[in-house]
């Protein structure tokens, strides 16, 4: 039998069959691998949180154990700063709102550190990260940033350890009322206690990090106010 492979009907049927076969194949692969992928994504998130409390470069098979040891407790806070849950880890960055705030309380050495997730926008796409504050809720103990698609060699340098380490020891809030976040990323460092030098040539990414820090840290004001040791 000789098919006319140039006829309209044949072409349409052929295209449909091809697409359906491929769709089933890809759906199968995606389902089959989903669990393993999710495990990797979770481990990646754990290692980012660990990086924010200064524990970097942990082997991937050690990440879960190290995380479980370092994180004393997870809290979900509402806008008033009250704890409404304890499964902070399962909250995805997209789901963070003023009324749904994850907080990780961690222990490194003798220090208790409070890790806040950060989400914001850079020049080309999303930014996210974690920042840890010491138990005075004032001093930054560490930070970790990631990005979706910032310019390689410029904005993408926010992932570098050198940049992230500049945040260590900076002051996050203006006073013990926690009403104003003073931690900044600026081109001109005027107050070295709270300002971090921006990345040259990456003004918009640096501004994105600045705004992300301001927005996300400010949301925890009520909790900090209630729990600070006077």
């Amino acid at each position: 039998m000789k098919l006319n492979t140039n006829s309209n009907v044949y072409t349409i049927v052929y295209a449909s069959v091809t697409v359906i076969v491929v769709a089933f194949l890809l759906a199968f692969v995606s389902l089959a691998l989903h669990e393993t992928q999710q495990k990797n994504i979770d481990n990646d998130k754990r290692s980012q949180i660990l990086a924010a409390i200064g524990q970097r470069g942990i082997a991937s098979d050690q990440v879960e154990a190290t995380f479980d040891k370092a994180v004393l407790c997870q809290l979900v806070l509402n806008a008033k700063g009250d704890s409404v849950g304890n499964d902070a880890f399962s909250i995805e960055n997209k789901a963070i709102t003023d009324d749904n705030l994850p907080l990780y309380i961690c222990q490194t050495g003798t220090d208790t550190l409070y890790v806040i997730p950060l989400t914001g926008r850079g020049l080309w796409g999303g930014l996210w990260g974690y920042i840890s504050l010491k138990s005075d809720f004032q001093t930054v103990a560490g930070a970790h940033f990631s990005h979706e698609s910032e310019t390689a060699g410029l904005g993408a340098r926010i992932v570098e350890e050198d940049f992230q380490n500049k945040f260590v020891g900076k002051k996050a809030f203006a006073d013990t009322d926690f009403s104003e976040v003073v931690l900044s990323v600026t081109k001109k460092v005027e107050n070295p206690a709270s300002d971090v030098d921006a990345i040259t040539g990456a003004t918009l990414t640096s501004n994105g990090v600045h705004n992300m820090l301001r927005d996300c840290i400010a949301r925890y004001q009520q909790y900090f106010k209630a729990h600070t040791i006077k």
Binding site: Y14, L25, L26, Q37
Partner: peptide, 27 residues
């Protein structure tokens, strides 16, 4: 392969394989 849509068919095959490889790498 119908001649008129041969590039599209090639693209579908390549895209499917690339997606599979990418998913495997992610896992």
């Amino acid at each position: 392969i119908p001649n008129r849509i041969r590039i599209i068919v090639q693209l579908v095959v390549v895209a499917a394989l690339v997606t599979i490889v990418s998913e495997i790498l992610k896992a």
